[in-house]
């Protein structure tokens, strides 16, 4: 079986004239279909750079990156954009939904930029389907300002799913959420992963990383540990525990 993502000895050097910043110093990584990996590390460890490279937003200075067997180092700006559109889904820390635009229209966004013309009826159907996957079909006509943080992030996940990507990339998806909402969002990710979607997420929080199947820790541009998660948290179970605890504290009825 060929890996969905195969990076070999990737280096990234930022050259701002006087100083050269060696952000990633030789990383090799294989990611297979159905994996769910947390990318961890302190600020400046190079995880954001690696994430940008994985997301085809940036090209490595040296080394190769094969996404679904396509070598991205030979692609130009527009071809990278097409690749992002077809093969990748992005979820950002700040949700990054278009303001004053309904949830449905936000989810439709990637389809507008596809190579294939999607008719507006099909766009709506696919967007509604993705919203139902994240459990928000009843909020399709809400604006982001009318949604809670967790709901906004679920809209963002629906948007990432709409073009049926090979890999879902999430940059600190729970960074702006409280702990219970975080569990809710991780539940969505786990459900998607169970359906076979490959997920990579950057996170600072160990307990969030514990919902993943594999943890990759970076320091100074290198991988310092790459381990499978032994005692994986299951969001459904955690949710029940949290609800029980809240009930005990009389927070909820």
């Amino acid at each position: 079986m060929t890996p969905v993502v195969k990076i070999t000895d990737v280096h990234k050097i930022y050259d701002s004239g006087e100083v050269k910043v060696h952000a990633v110093r030789g990383i090799s990584l294989d990611l297979y279909k159905g994996e769910m990996m947390a990318l961890m590390g302190a600020s400046g460890s190079g995880k954001s750079t690696l994430m940008n490279t994985l997301g085809c937003l940036d090209r490595p200075t040296s080394g190769t990156y094969l996404l679904d067997n396509i070598d991205i180092s030979t692609l130009d700006r527009n071809e990278l954009a097409d690749l992002r559109n077809e093969k990748l889904g992005f979820v950002f820390q700040g949700f990054n939904l278009l303001a004053r635009t309904t949830a449905l229209e936000n989810v439709e966004l990637p389809m507008l930029y596809g190579k294939r013309r999607v008719r507006s009826r099909e766009m709506q159907e696919r967007a509604m389907h993705c919203l139902s996957i994240v459990g928000l079909s009843d909020r399709a006509d809400h604006f982001p300002s009318q949604l809670s943080g967790g709901q906004q992030q679920r809209v963002a996940i629906a948007r990432a799913l709409v073009n049926q990507p090979q890999v879902l990339l999430a940059d600190e998806p729970t960074g702006n959420l409280d702990s219970k909402t975080s569990v809710e969002v991780m539940g969505v990710f786990q459900k998607l992963n169970d359906e076979g979607i490959t997920i990579v997420m950057v996170t600072h929080e160990l307990d969030i990383a514990n919902y993943c199947k594999r943890n990759l820790v970076m320091r100074d541009g290198r991988v310092v540990s790459d381990t499978p998660v032994a005692n994986r948290s299951i969001a459904e179970v955690e949710m029940k525990r949290l609800n029980a605890a809240e009930a005990a504290a009389k927070l909820i009825a």
Binding site: R77, A81, D82, R84, F90, P110, L112, Y113, G114
Partner: peptide, 8 residues
Amino acid sequence: IRLAVGAH
């Protein structure tokens, strides 16, 4: 966002 999701 538009560029990230594939806009040229």
